[in-house]
Measured scan of single mutants.
Amino acid sequence: GPMASDKRPRTAFTAEQLQRLKAEFQTNRYLTEQRRQSLAQELGLNESQIKIWFQNKRAK
């Protein structure tokens, strides 16, 4: 629909990254900035991508 703007492409996470994020989520529903930074480095992701993933996951 018209609401779907092309400005922010959805990140396609790899299965491996998703597995890691899910495991982290089961341990911590809320990430500290430090955890998020190390996860971002570990997974080669953007911190904001991880932050948003957690927000979306909590919203469900």
Rank of each mutant, 00 (worst) to 15 (best):
K51E: 14
K22F: 11
F13G: 01
M3W: 01
P9C: 14
G44R: 06
R35N: 06
L18R: 09
E42L: 06
T14L: 03
E33F: 11
E16A: 13
L21E: 00
R58Y: 06
K7A: 14
R20I: 07
K57W: 09
Q19T: 11
S48M: 13
A59D: 06
P2L: 04
F25K: 02
K57G: 05
I50R: 01
L43C: 03
S48D: 12
R10L: 14
R8E: 15
R36V: 13
K60H: 10
T27Y: 08
A12R: 14
I50F: 01
G44N: 11
M3S: 15
S48K: 10
L31T: 03
Q41T: 09
Q19G: 10
A59C: 10
T32W: 04
P9D: 08
L43G: 00
R29Q: 11
K22M: 13
P2W: 02
Q55S: 11
L18D: 04
N56V: 13
F25P: 00
T11W: 14
A4K: 05
M3K: 15
Q49M: 10
Q26H: 09
L43P: 00
A40K: 02
R58Q: 06
R29A: 08
A59G: 08
Q49F: 07
K51D: 12
T14E: 02
F54R: 00
R10Q: 14
T32Y: 03
E42C: 04
E24W: 02
L43M: 06
F13H: 02
N56P: 02
A12F: 12
K57I: 06
M3D: 15
L45A: 05
E24M: 03
K22N: 11
E33H: 14
G44Q: 07
P9E: 09
Y30M: 09
A40M: 03
A59H: 12
K60Y: 05
I52E: 13
L45E: 01
P2N: 15
N28V: 03
N28M: 04
K7N: 14
K22S: 10
L21Q: 00
A59V: 07
T32D: 11
S48E: 14
Q49I: 14
S48Y: 13
F54H: 01
E33Q: 14
R36A: 14
N46R: 10
S48A: 10
M3L: 13
T27G: 07
L21D: 00
N56T: 11
L43W: 03
F54C: 01
G1K: 04
T14S: 07
L18F: 06
N46S: 11
I52Y: 09
L43V: 04
R20C: 04
A23I: 12
E42A: 06
W53P: 00
A23W: 09
P2Q: 15
Q17W: 01
N56I: 14
G1M: 04
F13K: 02
K60P: 05
K22I: 12
